[in-house]
Amino acid sequence: MIVAKRKPLNEIAEMVAPYKRVSVIGCRSCVAICLAGGEKEVKMLVSALKVKNKKEGRDQEFEALVVERQCEKEWVKEVEDKVLGSDITLSMACSLGAQTIGDMYPSHVTFPGLNTGIFGVPEEQGVWSEKCVGCGNCIIHTTGGICPISRCAKSMLNGPCGGSANRKCEVNLDTDCAWSAIYDRLKIQNRLELIEKVTPAKDWSTSHAGGRRTYVREDAKLTPHQKKGKEAIQ
């Protein structure tokens, strides 16, 4: 899932300071699960902002809202009146949610309340680790199911580098060396021959390096007729 972190309170307060009526909109998807921007976090932030304003004598109105999935227009539509009735929206979703609101209401100002970080996996309560960077060309069938692009600090295709000591990464000694882990995994799978071979240059054009990506499923797209019907229902 997408893992995000709330921006520091002071940074948020400073961003929204020039605006009177602030709608704060959370999301019940990934950011709720990673405890950054769900209903509870939105309410806590609004309380904190109110306390701060009271102390500093600032007069602002906050409305706490939450939608099911902020990256989908249909869900955002449900709070359209609240968004447009405020002077600014502070999105407590990942950047995708914030940008969905921004793209739907271009003349309305929407700010991010979170820093969107990683495609991550919950390792234990309160701990998420990055395991994919969305390079668009998955190779983990050749690396024991472990992604070296996201899990190696140098995204090496033929690791580990010379800085791997005690199977830890030299960049962060608390982090496992991805290539040591790949070696160990392939060993228990009896597939070590895979890292005896040179992995050649990677084609990065499927990653962000190739420019902004749009994925299309032609068979899932609505026909002009279906689109018309949908608009009529709405």
Partner: peptide, 16 residues
Amino acid sequence: NPFATPYEYRVSRLAK
């Protein structure tokens, strides 16, 4: 680096 881990893989890496 013969002294980086996994030690048993370092010669293979040289071979690569």
